[in-house]
Design a protein around this nucleic acid. Structure first.
Length: 457
RNA sequence: GCGCCCUUCGUCUAUCGGUUAGGACGCCAGGUUUUCAUCCUGGUAAGAGGGGUUCGACUCCCCUAGGGCGUACCA
């Protein structure tokens, strides 16, 4: 059997690291088993769905390294849902309700005040065929609810009805359908809530495994009932834990700083983001994986914890740093070229500076230092300036190579009597304008003789 | 309010009745680099509280506290 998973966001906002966790989980799960991955836009909410968000989500997935095998849009499939709704109506499991939102809210509060679970009491089910027809004739528009199979013969006497599934993350799960309200499937205006289209699509698209956040656990109970009402076997479910901010708040689409798009703009490596999104809150060490293949190797839903995990953006810097430190020239060549880092010394340059930067873009700073910028020596004391001038006078005549630095500084040491920090720091500052950076032995030949001489204070 | 789930170093976690409670990240120290970073070595630091059960409890049970999620005509 081919594994088919899906990521089905609603395009009502930008996706964040928590959504990436879901998307990546589905992607890695299917890929690690030679399965397929579907990208589906759950855009039934016409009001709130925006093309801008849809485009951004697609872009973010691509950036993360996710390549869907198929793409669907729920707004293309309304006719299909309509047909399924008719099927449910014929079987008496989809019924019209005429309460207004206010009425429902009032009833809810009433039950709450009486310390009863605030579930819908199915009053609409008491309407006779004739009453319904009258209401319709008056031009009243109903919303439609799915009748949860939580009773033996009398829908007004729901009994404990357990739905079970073996969750990929959480083990054996139980949801009691009697504690749930009949979910509204269709609004008054005929638009769809996510519940049924999602189920219908999962059936039609052959989805075998649904991996989603823990916030869906209760939904899953109702949706399993819906799968069965539609004559289908439910897929396998897995509910991963949720990520929270450092202060413990849930991530929302409004947590802008953690949106995938903003992380991309900030110059983080997708592999760093993916590693953190997947590995946080699992029993695996949070170590940067350089690509999807190695992440897929680690990926195991049974390692995912059942409690919420704090997501610390600062960890991203750590992961990104290790990734950059070990990145080969070939891996970054194109990006360096785009920054203007090119030519015969580009490779040696990258291998020299990568250990001292956290993000690839920072290479540009060092490129400027090496190739253009004249060093700022203001910070040097008058005494150091004298020292540096004298040192520059003893620069070797030959063109610079990897041994030049040692030869030169050995000579300067002998002549000046300086050593250690006192010897190297002024020279570093004079050459680069900075008190730290890559090894000067490697940097010096890159700067070259001509540019070095031009930096004599 | 009710339902489900959760609670071990600062953080992410291992432990499935008997461990010096392990690892990773961070942090600190030492080494390497005659600087910084990298790298290597070492160290630091934890069972929410209270009751049981048991020869023995982080582990099982109950209570309390704290947290997450749900309880939508959001997804």
């Amino acid at each position: 059997m081919t594994i088919i998973t899906r990521f089905a966001p609603s395009p009502t906002g930008y996706i964040h690291i928590g959504n990436a966790r879901t998307a990546l989980s589905n992607w890695l799960f299917s890929k690690s088993q030679n399965g397929k991955f579907i990208f589906r836009l759950d855009d039934t909410d016409v009001e709130r769905s925006k093309t801008e968000y849809a485009d951004a989500i697609a872009r973010d997935l691509t950036w993360l390294g996710i390549v869907p095998d198929a793409f669907y849009r729920q707004s293309d499939r309304f006719a299909v849902y309509q047909a399924k709704a008719e099927y449910l109506k014929e079987h008496g499991t989809l019924y019209p309700c005429f309460e207004t939102a206010d009425e429902l809210e009032r009833k809810r509060k009433l039950r709450l005040a009486r310390k009863l679970p605030p579930v819908y009491t199915r009053d609409a089910l008491r309407l006779s065929k004739q009453e319904i027809d009258e209401l319709l004739a008056q031009g009243k528009k109903p919303h439609w609810r799915f009748l949860l199979p939580n009773f033996k013969t009398d829908p007004f006497k729901p009994e404990r009805t357990e739905v079970h599934w073996d969750d990929l993350v959480r083990g054996y799960q139980t949801v009691d359908l009697a504690s749930l309200s009949d979910p509204v499937l269709i609004r008054e205006d005929g638009t769809w809530l996510y519940t049924m289209p999602s189920v219908v699509d999962d059936i039609d698209m052959g989805v075998t495994h649904v991996i989603r956040g823990e916030d869906h656990v209760t939904n899953t109970g109702a949706q399993i009932a819906l799968f069965r009402a539609l004559g289908a076997e439910p897929p396998v479910f897995g509910h991963h834990n949720l990520l929270t901010t450092v202060s413990g708040e849930g991530l929302s689409k409004r947590t802008g700083a953690l949106s995938i798009g903003s992380l991309a703009v900030a110059g983080y490596e997708p592999a760093a983001v993916a590693s953190l999104a997947i590995l946080t809150g699992t029993s695996d060490s949070v170590e940067a994986q350089k690509d999807m293949a190695s992440l897929a190797k680690l990926f195991d839903l049974s390692h995912v914890s059942k409690s919420a995990a704090k997501f610390d953006p600062a960890e991203l810097d750590l992961l990104n740093r290790t990734l950059v430190h070990h990145m080969s020239f070939d891996e970054v060549k194109e990006r360096l070229t785009a920054m203007g880092i090119d030519g015969p010394i580009a490779k040696a340059f990258w291998e020299t500076v990568r250990g001292n930067i956290e993000r690839v873009a920072e290479a540009k700073v060092w490129w400027d230092i090496v190739t253009v910028k004249n060093a700022d020596t203001d910070v040097l004391s008058a005494e150091d300036v004298d020292f540096v001038r004298t040192a520059f006078d003893t620069l070797p005549d030959a063109e610079f190579d990897k041994d030049t630095w040692k030869t030169w500084t050995d000579a300067v040491k002998k002549q000046s009597g300086r050593s250690g920090k006192g010897l190297f720091m002024p020279l570093r500052v004079a050459l680069t304008g900075r008190s730290n950076g890559p090894e000067l032995a490697n940097l010096l030949p890159l700067i070259g003789k001509a540019r070095t001489l031009a930096r004599r204070p």
